[in-house]
Design a protein around this nucleic acid. Sequence first.
DNA 1: GCTAACCTATGACGAGCGTTATAGCCAGAG
DNA 2: CTCTGGCTATAACGCTCGTCATAGGTTAGC
Lengths: 196, 196
Amino acid sequence: MSREQIVTGAADMIRRRGLNATSIREVAKHAGTPLGSTYHYFPGGKTQLAAEAVQWAGGTVSKVLTAKLRKGPVDGLRAFFALWRQIVTESGFQAGCPVLAVSIEENASPQALVAAADAFRAWTGQLAASLEEHGVAPGRARSLANLCVSAAEGAVAMCRAERSIDPLDDVAAELTALLQAATEDPEMRHTVHNRG
Amino acid sequence: MSREQIVTGAADMIRRRGLNATSIREVAKHAGTPLGSTYHYFPGGKTQLAAEAVQWAGGTVSKVLTAKLRKGPVDGLRAFFALWRQIVTESGFQAGCPVLAVSIEENASPQALVAAADAFRAWTGQLAASLEEHGVAPGRARSLANLCVSAAEGAVAMCRAERSIDPLDDVAAELTALLQAATEDPEMRHTVHNRG
DNA sequence: GCTAACCTATGACGAGCGTTATAGCCAGAG
DNA sequence: CTCTGGCTATAACGCTCGTCATAGGTTAGC
C-alpha cells in the first residue's frame, strides 16, 4: 500500500535530516507517489504525517523490545543497542532516531512531539517493567530505564558527529554491566545511594 | 560587539529549533543587526555562522567543566547536569543543546558537524582526564565519559518531549553514583566486566 | 456500459529561504 | 574639511516550501 510507504519513507528522511528539512515533496518522490496523494492520505498535512512517522518508528522499536525482553532486561538492552548500531553503521553515520529528531525542534509539530513522548515512555516503561520482574525496586528501575534510553539516543548522535561507532559501543558495555549488577546483586536493586 | 551577538543568538535559535529551521534573517532580527551585516561578518554564509555558533556553545560548556572538574569528576558531572537542567527548565522545555541539534541533521553544514564533533570530544576528554587523575583506568575513563555525555544529551531531549525534568534528574543521580563508585572503589576502576 | 468512489496528475498560491549587489551612512585619519 | 574604509540599508535573484484546487483516470458493483 502506498500510504505505508509514505509513512516509512517520511520516518527515514526525518531520521537523517530532521523534521524541518524533510519536505512533503521529497517524501512523495521517495515513496514513488504523487504529491497530491500525500494530502489525500494525510488531510492533516505535514503535522499528521510527522506524527504517524514517529508513531511508526516508536512502535517498531517497541516490538523488538517486547520480543527480546522476554529473555530478561540485559538481553533486551543488548537488542536495543544492536538496533541502533545497525542503523548508524549501515547508513554510514547518516541516520539516527526520528523520535529524537522531532523532540528537539521547537513548535515543529505538536502532534509529533506527543508521539515522541509516547515512544520514549513506551520504551522506558517496557525496560523498567522487565527490571522490576527481575527484582529491581520500582524507583530504581525507572531510573535505570531512563538512563538506558537517554544514553542510547545521545550516543547515536555522538556517533554521527564523530563518525565513529565507539561512543555507542562504550555506552552499551557500561549499561550492560550496570544492568547485570542491578539484577544479580541484591544490594544494587534499590534507589541510588549518595555513596557507591 | 554585534558579531558576538549574532553568534550567541544563532546558538540560541539552533538550541530551540534546530539548524535548518534557523534562518539568517531571524538571527539578524533577534540580534538587532541588519541582514547585510550577517554576510559582512560571516562571508562563509550560514555554514560559517552555524559552525561558529556550535563552537561557541561547546566552548562555554568546556569552560564550566574546566572550572568545576578541579574539585573532582563528580563535582564536574554535577555542574554539567546542573547546566543542562537550567537550560531546559528556564526555557520551559523549549531549549536543548545546539551541538546535538547540528549532529543529527544530515548535510546541514559540514563545518558545523566538525565543530560538533570537536565539542563532544572536548567534553568527554576533559571528563575522562579527570577520572584518570582520580585513579580510574584509561579505557574505563573514556567509557564512562562517553556514557555521561551521551546520557545528558539524550536526557535533555527526552525531557523536552515529555515536558518533564525527571529523565534528566534520574540520569544525573545514576551517573553520580556510578562515578563515585568508580573513583572510590578500587575494584571498579578497570574495564567493565561481564558480570558485575 | 454506467456510475460512483477512490486515487492520480498537474499546476498554482503566497511565503520564506540563502545569497548577492549596490547605494548610503558615518566615524576617524590626514 | 576631505577622504577612506568599515558597517548599514534596501531591494532583488532564483528556489523551495506547505497547501489547495481541479481535472483526469481507473476500478468495482450493478
